[in-house]
Design a protein around this nucleic acid. Structure first.
Lengths: 127, 127
DNA sequence: ATCGGTGCAAAGGGTTTGCAGGGTA
DNA sequence: TACCCTGCAAACCCTTTGCACCGAT
């Protein structure tokens, strides 16, 4: 009844560990197919669902798409590039964010996302 | 060749003005149908598309769904309730957010969203 | 009388589910 | 061997598009 170890799920976990940034289901699929070309998108979705439930991944909604990354990265935030549509991790946070919210609202977490152009795309524009 | 004034688009604009919070396309549809029951969802989507292009609405991606609100509300942020799935506006912001981002990244804007339980739902839980 | 907007239904794109076969334990 | 996982295809849901009709100008 426990989870079984399969090469598909190993490859999916490996893709998220290697990515070092949040991945969409489609991005994960492409990365994993480099290892296992026959792997179907349904397997990606089912694995992500299980990994979310067991707390190994967390999800976020950025730029109209759900993205997933390792749950144990610690508190951080994100930068989304409109040019290449990739999302990157940003270290650090700021104080007193919670003070913005009325006390009657119960805060579970917050998400801070910067939108703009990433280092790579910005460099290409100005070169 | 300009935009025409129709009762459907008037009702759609009125719904966003009255809502005082971001609405999903489905929420807007329900609200507008109270006024014009025959109004179809495609009309909502087409009107939103035009209103975004003319800068009257802005869109955001929260909790897996695209939401829209008036563009002229000034800088503010959002609170999303996991219980009722509604998103609310939060006044204010904090300083020095941009300092978190590496200088090579070009910031266009930022989005800050608190996730938790809103006043109404929180009250129902504890009563 | 134009021609943009609307309503309906079909088409698209992304995500989920049913099912038979394959692989782990 | 038992049964979870996979791959494929169908089903779903949300959004977009085609088309004929309606209605604002």
């Amino acid at each position: 009844m426990g989870k079984r170890k399969t090469k598909q799920r190993d490859a999916i976990r490996a893709a998220f560990m290697a990515a070092e940034r949040p991945l969409t289901s489609a991005e994960a699929h492409v990365l994993v197919q480099a290892e296992i070309p026959s792997l179907g998108i349904a397997t990606i979705y089912r694995a992500i669902k299980d990994l979310l439930e067991e707390g190994w991944l967390v999800s976020m909604s950025i730029a109209g798409t759900t993205r997933y990354e390792l749950a144990d990265l610690g508190h951080h935030h994100h930068f989304h590039c409109n040019q290449c549509d990739k999302t990157f991790d940003i270290e650090g946070c700021v104080e007193d964010l919670a003070s913005l919210v009325p006390k009657a609202f119960k805060i579970l977490k917050h998400e801070l996302t910067f939108i703009g152009m990433c280092q790579s795309c910005n460099g290409e524009m100005t070169s």
